[in-house]
């Protein structure tokens, strides 16, 4: 189907398919998304055979989240994100909020672990994850005030005009920016969406989770509003590097501010409702967590 399509419809098809190719190829993306896909797909198979399949809605959340993160990072979308401020903001909305919430809402750990082939490598990874080397930094970053500070702080850090300027000019810094947003999103939303009971497993209490969401959302809301209202150009790197298509710089900035402001706030409220529901049903299902 893909071979010599010289006629019109064929070349249109090829044009569309080429949108799926990465703008800048990254081994990191291949390694991360490849490993996650193989482990999860294998885990789904193993668990289905063992008679304890992954709930369908959970696997749908997982694949949607993974596909979304891949699309914004490793397809033509990344090109537009590099050369249009508001698309860059959509990219970070996807990485820091939507994809991370979907992936952590899927509670993928059981399937990922089941998908890991048995053997010494699996034991070694399990030992590593339990070692103080991993556990200590993990507990530190998941300490609620730190988690809030890192979550909101990263947004402010990468949107500081001088830092944003350099990050868009340097490929290693650009990758660091995107991956730090994605990984922080996963950590933060796992803290919030961890399905284990606070009473039995010692996870963060539901009331505190709501407070954490609130504390992490408000600064971003303020920053988004500030960008929308800013009368002067804040991010002239897009002027300096050229935009993907001609658009008034101020329109780009206002749109980018809106995407920093409204959708993340909506996502925050949505997750708050989910946590609130669990808080209200706390006594009903303590200790009985659906898979």
């Amino acid at each position: 189907m893909l071979v010599p399509c010289l006629d019109q419809p064929g070349s249109v098809l090829l044009d569309y398919l080429s949108l799926l190719l990465p703008y800048e190829f990254s081994w990191l993306a291949i390694l991360f998304f490849g490993t996650a896909s193989v482990l999860y797909a294998n885990g789904q198979r193993v668990l289905a055979q063992s008679g304890e399949p992954v709930a369908r809605w959970r696997s749908v959340l997982f694949w949607l989240g993974l596909a979304l993160a891949y699309i914004v990072m490793h397809t033509r979308f990344d090109y537009y994100a590099q050369f249009m401020f508001f698309i860059h903001r959509i990219q970070h909305l996807a990485l820091h909020h939507v994809a991370a919430i979907l992936l952590m809402g899927a509670n993928p750990w059981r399937a990922l672990a089941a998908g890991f082939p048995d053997g010494s490598a699996k034991r070694w990874v399990a030992r590593l994850l339990q070692s103080p080397l991993v556990q200590w930094p993990y507990r530190f970053i998941q300490f609620p005030p730190v988690a809030v500070l890192v979550f909101a702080g990263l947004i402010f850090f990468w949107l500081t005009p001088s830092i944003h300027f350099t990050a868009m000019l340097s490929q290693p810094l650009y990758l660091l920016m995107n991956w730090s947003m994605f990984i922080d999103g996963l950590l933060f939303w796992w803290l919030i969406l961890d399905p284990r009971s606070p009473a039995l497993a010692g996870t963060l209490g539901f009331g505190k989770r709501i407070l954490v969401i609130w504390a992490a959302t408000v600064p971003q809301l303020a920053l988004g509003a500030y960008i929308v209202g800013a009368p002067h150009s804040l991010y002239d790197i897009y002027e300096v590097c050229g935009r993907a298509w001609p658009i008034a710089p101020h329109d780009d900035q206002v749109l980018g501010g809106l995407f920093t402001w409204i959708p993340p706030a909506m996502m925050g409220v949505l997750v708050m409702v989910v946590v609130l529901r669990r808080l209200l049903h706390q006594s009903d299902n303590d200790g009985v967590q659906p898979a």
């Binding site: 090109y79 590099q82 000019l169 300096v240 590097c241 050229g242 298509w245 001609p246 658009i247």
Partner: peptide, 22 residues
């Protein structure tokens, strides 16, 4: 790490070009 793009041509075939200003 820059780009350029072309706008839609007008009736006379003139079009804008977005480009790096650095």
């Amino acid at each position: 790490r820059a780009t350029y793009g072309y706008g839609e041509p007008d009736d006379n075939g003139n079009y804008a070009v977005s480009h790096s200003s650095a």
